[in-house]
């Protein structure tokens, strides 16, 4: 057979935007996705209500960072909730979404139909990662927006006094809130890449999710052991709380940069692992 005898040599190959669109619509038509975003939105709401109802005045520095400032300025609710959510709850939702990427399709059998479409294995991985990343941004934005709304509803809102003592206006503080959301989202992209890789290893999504939560937890444990300080800067979770430096004046972007580098490293390494694993995998599901 010569190449001229190739009847359907379609040259045009869409970029995969419509696949991404269906990926997102599949994700955002699931009740589970809304349940998780709803739970994320509840973090600042519970936090604000607890602070509002308690008469106890916190000494500065008591409780999670910024908690003592919440009563003075509602805009701190979002920041405090982010600090509360980042060690466990946000990684948990990321684990659910990224663990489901490939293993979920495999588990319900749709993976074989995507692959025979043919979707292209690398293309599917890219779209899955983009989908997981979209969820990460949606989760952090949900938390920030919910925080801003409940904060404004229950507490006075005004110019924000930063950690450095400088005062910024309300619009600027909202901008900082968006920056913090972006920072935290980027912080969680590395974990999403790890999740994508783990998801290619199994047909059981729950197993992948548990493994991803374990990775996130182990990383945080290693990060508090002083004996391991050499590897701390390279840990997935090392810069997770580094967004606090965005609340100084002038803004300290060094942590932002270090975080981006570390996360890009994780994306590169685990993205390649996922690629090499998935493109050679026998699909038996």
């Amino acid at each position: 057979m010569s190449s001229s005898n190739n009847p359907v040599a379609k040259i045009k190959r869409p970029l995969g935007l419509s696949l991404l669109a269906t990926e997102l619509s599949v994700m955002f038509r699931r009740r589970r996705t809304y349940a998780m975003l709803g739970a994320v939105a509840l973090i600042p709401i519970f936090l604000a209500i607890a602070v509002r109802l308690s008469s106890q005045v916190l000494a500065p520095g008591e409780g999670p960072p910024f908690l003592d400032r919440v009563t003075q300025n509602g805009l701190f609710v979002g920041f405090t909730a982010m600090i509360v959510g980042i060690p466990l709850f946000l990684p948990l939702t990321i684990a659910v979404v990224s663990g489901d990427t490939i293993a979920g399709e495999a588990g319900q059998g749709t993976l074989r139909y995507l692959l025979t479409a043919p979707v292209g294995r690398a293309r599917l991985l890219l779209v899955k990662f983009a989908g997981a990343a979209t969820f990460v941004f949606a989760a952090t934005l949900t938390l920030m927006i919910s925080g801003a709304l409940i904060g404004a509803a229950l507490f006075p809102v005004g110019p924000v006094t930063l950690l450095s003592g400088d005062v910024i206006s309300v619009p600027e503080s909202l901008l900082r809130a968006l920056l913090v959301a972006a920072y935290v989202s980027i912080s969680l992209l590395g974990l999403s890449a790890v999740g994508l890789f783990i998801s290619t290893l199994t047909d059981v999504p729950v197993g992948a999710m548990a493994a991803i939560v374990t990775v996130s937890t182990v990383s945080q444990i290693l990060d508090i052991l002083p004996q391991l300080s050499v590897i701390h800067p390279w840990l997935l979770s090392h810069n997770w709380l580094g967004f606090v430096s965005l609340l100084r004046q002038p803004m300290d972007l060094s942590s932002f940069g270090a975080n981006v580098l570390v996360q890009l490293g994780y994306i590169a390494v685990f993205g390649s692992l996922a690629y090499s694993r998935f493109t050679t995998k026998d699909i038996l599901s």
Binding site: R13, Y113, A117, R123
Partner: peptide, 21 residues
């Protein structure tokens, strides 16, 4: 094998958009 929470039509749209050609 399908996405149970999607309609039959949405399922086919999903699989058709998976076809890169």
């Amino acid at each position: 094998a399908f996405y149970g929470y999607l309609s039959g039509e949405a399922n086919l749209i999903r699989l058709d958009s998976a076809d890169q050609f």
